[in-house]
Design a protein around this nucleic acid. Structure first.
Length: 526
RNA sequence: GGCCCCAUCGUCUAGUUAGGUCUAGGACAUCGGAUUUUCAUUCCGGUAACAGGGGUUCAAAUCCCCUUGGGGUCACCA
């Protein structure tokens, strides 16, 4: 039998990173078995702009390279793939349930049901449905329907039964039906509820494996019962652990983003994000984008490979040593049997380390193509297609080497793109290495003269020049190099100083030294 | 609170299905040291865990029970 898995997001306007991990596992299991992966949109309760709310979700899949065999845009033999458009199927199933007596119309007003629920809770009693409407005769029921009395349809839970599943990750899990209230399957307007629509669709789409997050475990007995009542073959289950917030066992949630900001384990991610996003015109403090969303990582300049590798290692491992996986590796090696049971916290540190690894593997031209849009968005370059610009950016990237972990890191070398007048200088270090030392300014002034005389303004000769300059002045290189760096890049540390000088070019270096010397002088005077 | 799930270094995990080779392995983080003009990288090395208690057994991280702790979920949401 062909393996068919599905991921069924509701259109919320963003793709949750934890949901993405679930989707990845679904996709992997389907691909591993040469089966099909289906995307179904669970939009049974939202009416408004589904299309717009769906875009970020599909974009996330596309960005990561996870394709779907059936679903939005691609269609398929079981189209449509939007629950809002499959109402006739639910209606038919509902009638089947009603006709067979497996479900009943419940005329109890919601307030009464609610009151019973509360009373039971108060008395520490298990709440089960009153089933008062079940006592109605057929005539009475028809009268109520004719009178337009509202009702919901509930599944008649077989209270004597037990439900047991053999979960692919959790093993045997059992529930006692005598403890279950009769679940509503259709609202008073006749529309289906999640559990019902899901069961109808999973059966219709011939889903063989329902792989979803652990939080759905309590839904499972209801769904099993529904499948049984409908006469379906029940799918196999795999309840994978949810993704927890860093350093905790709590499910990661969009609503807790403010709390995460103060989480020390999350700090590094927010710092990186804030720094990059603020450069490209996105408000880092806005709720519109945060590390719980897949889009965040794209905007900050992560590679799909890095994100994918992080996600797959959350709750799954191949063995005791392998850490790096390409999508293709995962596809070949993934198995549900090796999915762990406990919740795994997202680890920003490790995520960044995976990212750094995959960035280091990326060919230079792809690094270039990745960085260009960031520089463009930040207004640091004008034309992404201009050959001279591309060449310069390529040089900077080469110079940056492993300092470039995410594309957004290119902003750490913004000194190569800003106008001299706009160069920001790290004041604290400038004071320490240029303004305060007695001889620093004189030294720099002398050095500036020498630099002006250089004919071959290249890294190696510049290195020699600075070195011999320090020797000649009988000062340590540590008194010269950092000062020069501060003057021309504005930073206390960074990429190779001499290659930086070469890349900046003689004229620029001289201008920046003049500017810095002037600045230091005026500060010394005051 | 009911139901259900989970429990190995700070974190992600290997080891648990078939008890011994586990004085518990790897990775990230961290701390040292080497390399380096700074930072980063790289390389070497260190610190660091079987939640607790009972069983079963010659032998338990591994099997059983209890306790504790953590978490998920309890809608005419998905």
């Amino acid at each position: 039998m062909t393996v068919r898995t599905r991921f069924a997001p509701s259109p919320t306007g963003y793709m949750h990173i934890g949901g993405m991990r679930t989707a990845l596992f679904c996709w992997l299991w389907a691909r591993h078995n040469r089966g099909q992966f289906i995307l179904r949109i669970d939009d049974t309760d939202q009416q408004r702009n589904i299309d717009a709310a769906l875009v970020p979700i599909l974009d996330a899949f596309r960005w990561l390279g996870l394709d779907w065999d059936e679903g939005p845009e691609v269609g398929g033999p079981h189209a449509p793939y939007f629950q809002s458009q499959r109402r006739d199927l639910y209606d038919a199933a509902l009638n089947k349930l009603l006709d067979s007596g497996k479900a009943y119309r419940d005329f109890e007003v919601p307030e009464d049901t609610q009151a019973q629920r509360e009373a039971a809770e108060k008395e520490k009693r298990v709440y089960v449905s009153s089933r008062a409407s079940l006592a109605l005769t057929k005539d009475e029921t028809e009268k109520l329907i004719a009178d337009g009395k509202p009702f919901v349809v509930r599944l008649l839970v077989p209270r004597a039964d037990k439900v047991a599943i053999n979960d692919h990750v959790r093993g045997q899990v059992e529930w006692d039906c005598s403890l279950m209230p009769d679940p509503v399957v259709a609202r008073s307007d006749g529309s289906p509820l999640y559990n019902f629509a899901t069961v109808v669709d999973d059966a219709a789409l011939e889903i063989t494996h329902v792989i979803r997050a652990e939080e759905h475990l309590p839904n499972t007995p209801i769904q099993v019962l529904l499948h049984r009542a409908l006469g379906n073959k029940t799918p196999e289950w795999a309840h994978i652990p949810y993704v927890a917030s860093p350093g905790s066992k709590e499910k990661m949630s969009k609503r807790k983003i403010d709390k995460y900001r103060t989480n020390p384990q999350f700090q590094k991610m927010f710092e990186l994000g804030d720094q990059v996003l603020s450069r490209i015109g996105i408000d880092p403090k806005s709720d519109a984008l945060s590390p719980v969303m897949v889009a965040y990582y794209r905007e900050v300049g992560f590679l799909p490979a890095g994100v994918l590798n992080s996600l797959v290692r959350l709750g799954w491992s191949l063995d005791d040593a392998t850490e790096f996986f390409t999508l293709d590796d995962m596809k070949r090696k993934f198995s549900l049997e090796r999915v762990i049971k406990s919740a795994a916290g997202l680890d920003p540190d490790k995520m960044l380390s995976f990212q750094a690894h995959w960035m280091s593997q990326l060919p230079a031209d792809q690094k270039l193509d990745g960085c260009l849009p960031f520089l463009k968005k930040a207004g640091l370059i004008d034309d992404e297609n201009d050959p001279a610009t591309r060449a310069r950016v390529a040089s900077v990237i080469e110079l940056a080497a492993d300092r470039l972990r995410v594309f957004g890191d290119i902003f750490q070398l913004d000194e190569f793109f800003v106008a001299d007048a706009d160069l920001k200088i790290d004041d604290k270090n400038f004071q320490k290495r240029v303004v305060k030392p007695e001889t620093a300014v004189d030294l720099l002034r002398d050095l500036r003269k020498r630099l002006a005389e250089v004919v071959d303004f290249a890294s190696a000769p510049l290195h020699d020049l600075l070195q011999s300059f320090a020797a000649e002045k009988q000062v340590k290189v540590g008194d010269v190099f950092p000062a020069v760096r501060l003057c021309v890049t504005g930073k206390a540390q960074g990429a190779d100083l001499f290659r930086s000088l070469e890349l900046l070019g003689q004229e620029c270096v001289l201008r920046r030294m003049d500017r810095a010397i002037g600045l230091a002088e005026s500060q010394r005077a005051s």
